[in-house]
Structures are given as structure tokens and as C-alpha cells.
Design a protein around this nucleic acid. Structure first.
Lengths: 208, 208, 208, 208
DNA sequence: CAATAAACGAGACGGTACGTCGAGTCTTCCT
DNA sequence: AGGAAGACTCGACGTACCGTCTCGTTTATTG
């Protein structure tokens, strides 16, 4: 699964090496959380020196930010044919809110967002907005299909699902699983989005 | 009516003194944020010693937690007569989501939640659940008034508004003001909660 | 042999603790030399933290200087009755030039003398001058006894023996043992110091 | 008339280039001292790369050592006709102990001698022994002239002058000037070396 | 009302991590 | 082919903060 090793001994920081460091950072991040992640630990895990880390990233925040983005995965637009299917696929997939490592990273990084404005800006631009844009696109497509009423305020509805998931995970402290996601979709999102009569409370398949 | 002067030199920790320390902690917290808040700084600001701080609170997290709770203020059940009025009052009041210092503290404490399970438990029990219980009570009362349909899943709907507010503040980085709260209430909460025809539409369209 | 432990758990730096640290510093110094002596190593060896070291000593030089002085030992004036006996006793005794650890320290510290003027000044005043004064005193006493001619320039003769010993040890790289010291005493110092006829060129025993 | 290319030892680089680097090293050494001399600084000053430096010299100590030797200059046997004249000429000449830059370099190199045995061996063979051999030769020649008694232990006497000079410079911290050298020659070396009556004590006064 | 025990301020302590710098190694590019 | 450039690993630097601790003092409660 690993890419063919370019140079076992000392691959320069040229993408491969950089990704190795980012992977190490993510491993440490997931293991101990953002606050307990130390640059020494990342350096040791990556068999790099702190000097190298600081040469490439100004701060711990910058390193973690880049690491998160590197693992966001290719944002693939889900296309199950129905809004419900798309939403569930998007949030319960490998990089969704039910992905433990993903939420762990999210939790870890929220810490940094609240204190480092530079990091926050970069994190929002590179990690968050692509995700939100994707969710918005899903709704737009459903509108084009006529599945969702045309006057739906997608900017308000799209963040609904991640909002609830994050709140449940971090604040309430309860797990975010597929059952919960489905419940929110069926009882909150779809009733708001779909024309009154067509509310597919069991709408796993679209009638068409 | 004022309490007897607290002794300028060395007041024992007896409620008053404790509150002074918590106030000092809050002052430092608001000024520099959670991670740059040091116990030394709090001790200095409160003219106390670190030993005193640690004698009363197990950790920085516990101290900040208590400081936050101490300023949450008495939870007053809003009673404006309508669900919409109650919700807006609750979230836009002096200790609501539009209160800058309140959200700043919330952000600060998230740091601790994600790493200290003991702290998280206490924070949830003492800070979060009272708030959620209050929100749920508001919906229950609206149900009793017949303003909201009887089969509404209040456990799902009640956290909706705080979820969205927190997401917007922390993740998206946009301000949570009364206009935004009202929008969410009118376009998300009320349509879900109220019988189709009976939407508290006084707010949904802008009659001017 | 150790003084009664004042406090087994954590003796404050109050002489005992300070001496423990200085002993640790000397141990490291003798083992690896001045340049490879690191504050971390001293801290570890003394089970202290670097902060503690820097709180008490401004620099590595100051710490080593103090450590050297602490181990110079009580400068006891030798009194064997003859100049030859005094000299041999002084240089071949426990803190003399044949003491391996003493010369090791000397070698180690010479490094620092050549680059840190502050250290050099302190080292000369606290370590070197007392030693030179002692040697000069030995010659003065021999003059009073009439063993040495009265017009001997003691300031020139007193440093002779240490000079030759240091040169042999550091520069030439040969061991400085009692045999060598005796040779220098018999062939250099005594011929210069003593009246022509009385030169005990084989004067291993003092005639009295 | 240019001297034949010395080279021989290191065929890779042309003597000129090597000497340029050594000159650069000396310049940096004199400017900032041994410990603040960095290989980067030498490389920059010589417009060379660190790799080139390390290809030719094992360590900073080796480089500085060679730089020192390169400036020792050709050892010219002094020939003034008298032992006293030879000694003063040898030690007060351009590369003698009164040459400030020479003693400064000597101090610098002591650092390396005390920790790197390999370097010490090379330093002794290439720098020290030629000097000692020269001093010994001076005494031998004086013996042949009958100026010095035949049974003089030259191995013990020859290092005397450098020993005292080094001790005074490094340990005592006082300047080694011609006046001091002359004093040691007249009061220590000559009385030991010359037959009682023939002591070049006239040397203190200038017979002309 | 003195004596005593508890709680206090002050701050040193052992640790851990910080971000920087230099030594010595190694790779890439250029001539 | 070999040197300049410079990134790399390693490890020490001196500082800051954490959470623990030992002081000596102050306060409130006892005898």
C-alpha cells in the first residue's frame, strides 16, 4: 500500500519525505491529541530533526494543519441518486464523521483553531471549505433533480449535519454513528429540504 | 449589604477568596486564551501562590472549568409566551451564544474537554446539561401550549441551535449574532417544530 | 564518610545539595573533559534540572569553576623539615600533579581558560593563586631555615615545578609521576635554590 | 625561483587552494577565537563548501591544527654564537613565545589536544617535536662549544623555557615578553647549564 | 490570652518541551 | 570528475511552564 520507496536511506524532502513526516505527525496526533503532540515526538517518529520540521513549517499548528489536509483524502462527490443516500454516504464514509480517526483529528485540531488565528485561517481554507462546498453541491444537485425545493437556503442547511455531529461528539460526548446520522437526516434535514408531501421519511429509494 | 471587606493582605479561601481567584483566572483567560494562560499568571493576578491554586483545583483545566461555571450566571427560564421568543431570548441574552466572552470561554474550554475525560465529565454535568435541560424545557412548554406538535423529538431538536452556533463560531469563524440566530430559528427550528400551518411566521417573512 | 543526610527526600540547595551538584559536575568533567561536559549531563548525574543549575550558576564556566575550587581540598602546608621533602610532598600528594584526577581537571579547564575571560579570572583567583602562594611559602620557609640562599627569586622558582609538570602532561603527553617530579626537583630546583656545596643531588634523605 | 610545490601529502587539491582555506581558517580563528569559529564561517570565508573542508580534515580541530602548523614558518636554527643569544632569539623571534598570535593559536589548539588523541599525536609530531628538537639542538651545539657542561640532561632542560612561558601565558595570565624570557634564561637556564664559574651571568650585563 | 495547628504567600525544585544553532554527513547541481 | 551549495540528523543550548514541595508567616481555633 505504501508507494514504492524512492530511497530507503535518506529521501530528500521532496513530496515523499514530506508526506512521511506528515504521516508521522498524524500518527502522533491521533495517539496523544494536539496539546500533547510535541515536535520532538514527531521528529523522532519521522526520524527527522526538529530543525527540519521548523525549516519547513513555522509552527506546530502549521505542521498539524498540513498533516490534516494531506489526509483529508480525495473529496469524491457521492452519487447515489438520492439526497438521503448522498448525505449518508458522505458522512458515514471513510472520511466522514463516523470515522473515528477523522473525528479524533477534528477534536485535536479544534484546540488549535481557537488560539492560533493563522492556523485557523489556513485550516478553514484548506480543510473545511472544500468539505462544505461538497455538501452544498450535493444539495444543489438534489435541487436540480427536483428532489429538493428550489428556494432552499443551502448555505444554512449544508452545515447542519456536521454541526450536529461535532456537537454530539465533542460537547455531549456521545458517539456519532450511522444510526445517529440517519436519524438527523430523516428527522431534520429531509423534512426541511423536501416538498411537504414527498418527505421520504423512509426515502432510502427515490420514487421518481 | 456588602460583605465585610475581604482583608487586603491575606484573605483565607472562603468563598469570597475563591471567587476572587476564579475572577482572576477568567481575566487571564479572556486576555490571553486558554493555552497561554499559566498558573503562575493566575497566581500572580490573584496574589495567590500556585500551591493554593492546586490545593483547591486539580489542574489548570479544573480551575478554568470552575471559573467558567462561576460566570455562567443563574439559568433563568425565558418566558416570552412564544417558542420563537423564548429561543431568541435564551441564545441572544447575556449568557447566550452571541455573548462574545461566553463563546470565547467556550472555545477555551474545548481544549480541556478533548484531553481530560474527568474534566469533560464535570464540564458536561455542570455546564452543558443545565443548558440543554433548559432548552428542552422550553420545547416541552411549547408542546404543552400546543404551539409545537406533540410527537416532536425534543432530544434531537433542542441541541440544534447550540450545535449550529458553535459550528459557525469555531469552525467557520463567522460571528454568531442575533440575526443569525433568528434565521436558524425561523428557517430550521420552527418549520420542524410547528404544525405546517401554524408556523410562527411573524419572523419568517419580513413584513416591514 | 558522607555527612549525615539532612533530608533524604529533597535537601534544598543549602550546601549539601550544592556540593552534590558540584561533585556531579566534577565527575562528568573528569570523565569527558570540559568541552564535552554538557549541562544536561551534569543535571542528570546530579538528578537536578537544568533550570536549577542555571538558577545558581550563570554558565557552564561558573559551575565548573566552582566545582574545581570545591575540590581543591584544604591547602595544607607540607612540613617535612626539608625543601626537597616539602616539594615532593606538595606535588605528589593527593591534590598534587601526580594525582590523575587533578591533572585531568586541570587539562579540562585549560580549555575554558583560553576562551572565557570571566572564567579565567575567577579560576586564577580562586584556584591557582592559593596554590602558587603555598609553593612560594614553602620556599620562603626554606630560606628562613637557611636551606635556600636568601637572594632566591621565589616568584620565578615557585611556578617552575607546576610549569614543567603541566607541559609534560598536556603538551608532551607523558605521565607525570613521582619519579619525574623528583628528577626535576633534584636536577633543576635544588641546584638553583641551594648554596653550591649543599646541593643534595641525591638528597633523597634529609641529613638534618 | 618559486619553491617547489610542497603538495606531496594531499594530491587532490593544489597547495595554493589548501593554503587559501588554511588562511581563511586562521583569519576566522584570530577574529573570533576557537570556540566561536564555525566550519560554516570558514567555508564561507574560503568560498568553499563544508564538504570540501571535511574531505580534507577530519574535524574542526584538525583543520585548526593544520592551519596553525602552516603558519609556524620554517624552523630556522638560530646561530648567534652563544647559548643565551640562541635561546632569546628562538623564543622571542617571529614565531616564538612572545609572538601574540602564536600563543593565541597555541591556546586555541590546547582545546583539541585534550580531547582528541589522534589530533594530539599529530600535533605533537608535527608541531611540538620539531620545536623541541630545535631547542635540544641548540643545547647540544653549546655543549660542543664547551659552553655547557657535558653531562647536562638536555631532555630535561630544553623544555624548561617553553614550559614556563606557557604556564605564565595560560595559567597565570601574564604576558610573556622578551624581558621575562631573558629573566628565565639568566636566572634558571644558564645557571643550570653552565659550569659554575663560567656562568654566563655576564649576560645580565651586556659585555659587548 | 497565649499556644497551636491549619492554611497561606512565596518561590525553588525535578521534569519536559520549546525553538535555535553548530558539527559532521550526504545529495544535487553545475562546471 | 570534483567542487559549491546547502539540506539533512543529531544533540546541546538556555528558557518557560507544569505540578510538587518546603519554607516562614499569618490566621483562627483551641487549652
Amino acid at each position: 500500500m505504501t508507494p514504492p520507496p524512492v530511497d530507503q536511506v535518506r529521501p530528500r524532502i521532496e513530496g515523499d519525505r514530506e508526506q512521511q513526516i506528515l504521516d508521522a505527525a498524524l500518527a502522533v496526533l491521533v495517539e496523544v491529541g494536539y496539546d500533547r503532540l510535541t515536535m520532538d515526538a514527531v521528529a523522532t517518529a519521522a526520524r527527522a530533526s526538529k530543525a527540519t520540521l521548523y525549516r519547513r513549517w513555522n509552527s506546530k499548528a502549521a505542521l498539524v494543519s498540513e498533516a490534516l489536509v494531506s489526509r483529508r483524502g480525495p473529496l469524491q462527490t457521492p452519487d447515489t441518486g438520492s439526497l438521503r443516500g448522498d448525505l449518508v454516504a458522505m458522512f458515514c464514509g471513510p472520511h466522514g464523521m463516523t470515522d473515528g480517526s477523522q473525528t479524533a483529528m477534528l477534536a485535536a485540531v479544534l484546540t488549535a483553531v481557537t488560539r492560533d488565528e493563522e492556523f485557523a485561517t489556513e485550516f478553514r481554507a484548506r480543510f473545511l471549505e472544500p468539505k462544505l462546498a461538497l455538501a452544498t453541491a450535493v444539495f444543489r444537485r438534489a435541487q436540480e433533480r427536483g428532489e429538493v425545493r428550489a428556494d432552499l437556503d443551502t448555505d444554512l442547511i449544508a452545515p447542519l449535519l456536521p454541526s450536529v455531529a461535532i456537537h454530539r461528539h465533542l460537547m455531549v460526548g456521545l458517539p456519532v454513528d450511522e444510526e445517529f446520522i440517519a436519524r438527523v437526516v430523516d428527522e431534520v434535514v429531509l423534512p426541511l429540504a423536501c416538498p411537504a408531501g414527498a418527505t421520504g421519511s423512509t426515502g432510502s429509494t427515490d420514487p421518481r
